[in-house]
Simulated assay, not measured.
Amino acid sequence: MQLVLLACLPGALALLWQYGWGTLLQLLLTLAAALACEALVRQLRRQPVNNQQALFGIGAFAEGSALVSATLLALALPPYAPWWLPLTVSAFAILFGKSLFGGFGQNPFNPAMLGYAFALVAFPVQMSQWPAPGSGHGLLAALQQVFNLDSGLVDGWSQATALDSLKHNDRLTIDELFAGHPAFGRLGGRGTEWVNLAFLLGGLLLLQQRVIRWQAPAGMLGALFVVSLLCWNGSGSDSNGSPLLHLFSGATMLGAFFIVTEPVSGATSERGRLLFGVGVGVLVYVIRTWGGYPDGLAFAVLLMNLAVPTLERLATRSAGATQ
């Protein structure tokens, strides 16, 4: 858990660089809600915590799963979402994504993605208010925005993301979008391409330290690349976007190295992890291109969580047939 949090640091710093103090405020709010909910559940169940086995030796952190889930959720939320949104969705993620099923090691769904999907469905307006990269506020302005002290700030910095602009584009070519639309950078979304590179760096650290296995990230990124390449219909106004655009926009690298590698809700066998990653990659592209949401990572992961038992049976049969 400590290494996962350390690997999140490059992506978190990139988000702070691009969007300002809002990301830190979201992180503090999600952590507060997650730790409070987990402490309440432990008290109701009368489950003591061994401080020697707790993350960083702090009993309130327990084994660290709530801390990691809250961190990943905060990094995925819009940086200047109102204060009640991170509190609500973080509590939902811990209570309904983890505690309801028996706590640590029992959750069939990824808690962070369950909370994020809940936010998309329940609060679509707040979840669509992403700031333009490089327009991050100072701490005072961030506090005013997050705690609704000045609701007029949102009109000055919010804009559609690259994936959202691509989904609703019907007249500009891809070249025109990259040349003139402020949401696009060199490879993908402006700002988000650097964030994705930072999460890629953190993911490579996890692979190097053998905290995660390569199958799920490789399956997701490989499937997303192949499907987007096969469905890439050029640079016209009806284009679905290039493979590089899909790899370096949205939450692609965060999903590949920090979400699909979650050990409890994902597959455990080598072939199962590979199939799980491939399924997430295909579903992410399908939802981005033809679905109702610009990204779709959360729904892709949750759908594949449901398919884990079937994936494990397929992996076992395939291994048996090979032998």
Rank of each mutant, 00 (worst) to 15 (best):
V121I: 15
R313D: 03
T261N: 07
G102E: 12
L187M: 10
W290E: 15
V227R: 06
A142Y: 01
R171C: 15
A183N: 03
G281N: 01
G180A: 09
L207R: 11
P108N: 10
T88G: 08
P124K: 14
A122G: 03
R313T: 07
S135H: 15
Q209N: 09
G281P: 00
Q209V: 08
M113C: 09
S235K: 11
G103R: 05
N148M: 15
M127I: 07
L201Y: 05
G202N: 04
L201E: 01
L28N: 00
N305I: 06
G22K: 02
P78E: 04
G11S: 08
G180F: 07
R42M: 15
A81K: 01
S158Y: 04
V49N: 04
V89E: 03
S69V: 05
A256V: 10
A321P: 00
G11Q: 03
Y293M: 05
G191L: 02
L15E: 12
Q208I: 05
A256Q: 03
G188I: 15
R273G: 02
T23S: 08
L95M: 11
I259A: 07
E176M: 09
I287H: 08
K98Y: 08
P79M: 06
N50A: 11
A14Q: 09
G279F: 06
H137P: 00
F299R: 13
L166E: 11
E176W: 11
F96P: 00
F248S: 06
R313H: 11
L303G: 08
G266V: 14
V308K: 04
G203D: 02
D170L: 13
D164V: 06
Y80C: 00
F123V: 08
V308F: 07
Q209E: 14
D175T: 14
N148V: 13
S265P: 11
G64A: 03
W214A: 14
Q18T: 06
T322F: 12
T30K: 03
V264E: 04
A223K: 03
L24C: 08
I94K: 04
S228Q: 14
R317K: 12
G191S: 02
P217Q: 02
